[in-house]
């Protein structure tokens, strides 16, 4: 399996932000997108995950192969850690949540309502969800926000295990994860240029 993105252009709020993006991601590999704030990394990730249509270009894998995680973890404050994870396991039709609980050291917290967790613990729970989806391509938007050093190490271990199992990871992040085997792509050069001449045409700009 290989994720191939060719000539991808994406728009935010109707305005093209990035264009002509090309990359390949083979099974067992990770790719980190970098670039200044507001360049459109989130938009690219949402497009690849199938949440919004691309302006142009091709994404070789179906959205059914991907799982997406962003700033919001989708946790329900009044459900316990275990209930939150079991729900996603049931939605994705996968089995147990034990690996996820262990992978992010949540076993001791399993009976605690998600609302009573600290910000870092919530994030860990949000990332643990990735393990119960059973999907091969992880699409991650700033996965390490509010994680401490130890938790970042946990995350990197989880990514490595995922890659070793033939998975892929595509992420946008600013910090250095210590995930040295990951390729890095700077999206800065793909910033969409304003149309050269001003056709006042079908799309407004």
């Amino acid at each position: 399996m290989e994720l191939e993105v060719s000539e991808l252009s994406v728009a935010r709020g109707g305005i093209p932000v990035l264009e002509g993006l090309n990359f390949r991601l083979a099974a067992g590999h990770a790719l980190i997108l970098r670039g200044p704030n507001g360049i459109g990394k989130t938009t690219v990730l949402r497009t690849i995950a199938g949440l919004q249509p691309p302006l142009a270009g091709r994404i070789s894998l179906d959205r059914e192969t991907m799982t997406y995680a962003a700033h919001a973890d989708g946790l329900k404050a009044t459900l316990t850690v275990e209930e939150n994870l079991s729900f996603w396991a049931a939605v994705f039709g996968t089995g147990g949540i034990d690996a996820a609980l262990d992978g992010f050291a949540l076993r001791d917290l399993r009976a605690r309502p998600a609302g009573a967790l600290s910000a870092g613990q919530k994030r860990r729970l949000g990332l643990a969800r990735l393990l119960v989806t059973g999907r091969p391509v992880w699409v991650l938007d700033e996965p390490t926000v509010s994680l401490d050093v130890e938790a970042v190490a946990m995350f990197v271990r989880a990514v490595r295990a995922h890659l070793a199992g033939g998975g892929m990871a595509l992420m946008a992040t600013h910090i250095d994860l210590g995930l040295d085997e990951a390729a890095v792509l700077d999206v800065g050069p793909f910033r969409a240029r304003a149309a050269q001449e001003d056709h006042f045409d079908e799309v407004f700009l």
């Binding site: 991907m66 989708g74 939605v91």
Partner: peptide
């Protein structure tokens, strides 16, 4: 509520 906490995004990318 599901929109605010991001569950709706995650549900939309789920098999449902």
């Amino acid at each position: 509520l599901d929109w605010e906490d991001g569950s709706l995004d995650l549900l939309a990318t789920s098999p449902l």
